[in-house]
């Protein structure tokens, strides 16, 4: 019961964030919304594991958290430098 309520609330949050990612005026709003959507997906996977009594789902949510972070950094770098290999040596403040 507790987990069903939490899963429903998380799903509503995901819908709201998805609306922002569709409506977002520019690419940065979309990246931000997709990043939040990933965090909410990590939450939903963990809650779903508890809801069905199979906590092994936590391994999936750990992997999803890793991929979410790397994906956000990669897309941000791609938007800034228009390529994955540029900007490392020339930018004195680092990659991003």
């Amino acid at each position: 019961m507790m987990y069903a309520a939490a899963a429903a609330g998380t799903a509503v949050c995901m819908l709201l964030v998805l609306a922002r990612s569709i409506a977002g005026p520019n690419i940065f709003n979309r990246i931000l919304a997709v990043n939040s959507f990933g965090t909410l997906a990590v939450m939903l996977i963990a809650i779903y594991g508890f809801l069905t009594g199979r906590p092994e789902f936590l391994d999936l949510s750990l992997v999803y958290a890793l991929i979410n972070f790397i994906g956000t950094i990669a897309v941000t770098k791609f938007v800034t430098f228009v390529g994955m290999g540029e900007g490392v040596e020339r930018d004195d403040m680092g990659d991003i």
């Binding site: 309520a5 609330g9 509503v12 949050c13 709201l16 931000l32 939040s36």
Partner: peptide, 12 residues
């Protein structure tokens, strides 16, 4: 869940 809902509402 309440904080997440407020955060998602703020995103909109």
């Amino acid at each position: 869940v309440a904080f997440s809902l407020i955060g998602a509402y703020g995103m909109i």
